[in-house]
Each structure stands twice: as C-alpha cells, then as structure tokens.
C-alpha cells in the first residue's frame, strides 16, 4: 500500500513540475548499515545536483 501511494505521489509531483529526483523512495532495513549509507550518499548527490528547492517553499 505504501508502494502504491509513493508510486502515485512521485508521478503526481513530477506532473505538477517538482523534479522527479526530489521525491525518492526506497526500502532500508535496520540491519543494512552499508546500504543505508549508500542511499543517503546517493540522495544527497542527486539533491546537490539539483540545487536548493524553490518550489512549494514558504518564505517567512
């Protein structure tokens, strides 16, 4: 069910113009330390490539 929600959420955010690389979903178990590190490295690299988020950000 979570998989279904994320499949539609990612597709919908992309549709309204939020870059697909900003919505990232994956499974990590508590015992997969190395995989977790790799996921975070990958995500930060993707986000750094995109630069700061400006969409749906509220200026206070």
């Amino acid at each position: 069910m979570a998989r279904r929600k994320f499949a539609t959420l990612k597709s919908f955010l992309d549709y309204i113009g939020i870059e697909g690389d900003r919505t990232i979903f994956t499974w990590v178990s508590a015992s997969e330390g190395e995989r977790f590190a790799n996921v975070i490295k990958g995500v930060t690299a993707k986000v750094q490539a995109l630069g700061p988020a400006t969409k749906l950000v509220k200026e206070l």
Partner: peptide, 18 residues
C-alpha cells in the same frame, strides 16, 4: 479502494536502488 490494497507485482520501478 486501490490505495487500501496491493498486488505482489505492483509497479516498483520508481524505487531508488543505489
């Protein structure tokens, strides 16, 4: 309702695998 059920072969190509 589609979001309160699942199938084993649901779409999962969006899942991130580093």
């Amino acid at each position: 309702p589609p979001l309160s059920t699942f199938k084993e072969d649901d779409k999962e190509d969006f899942i991130y695998n580093p």
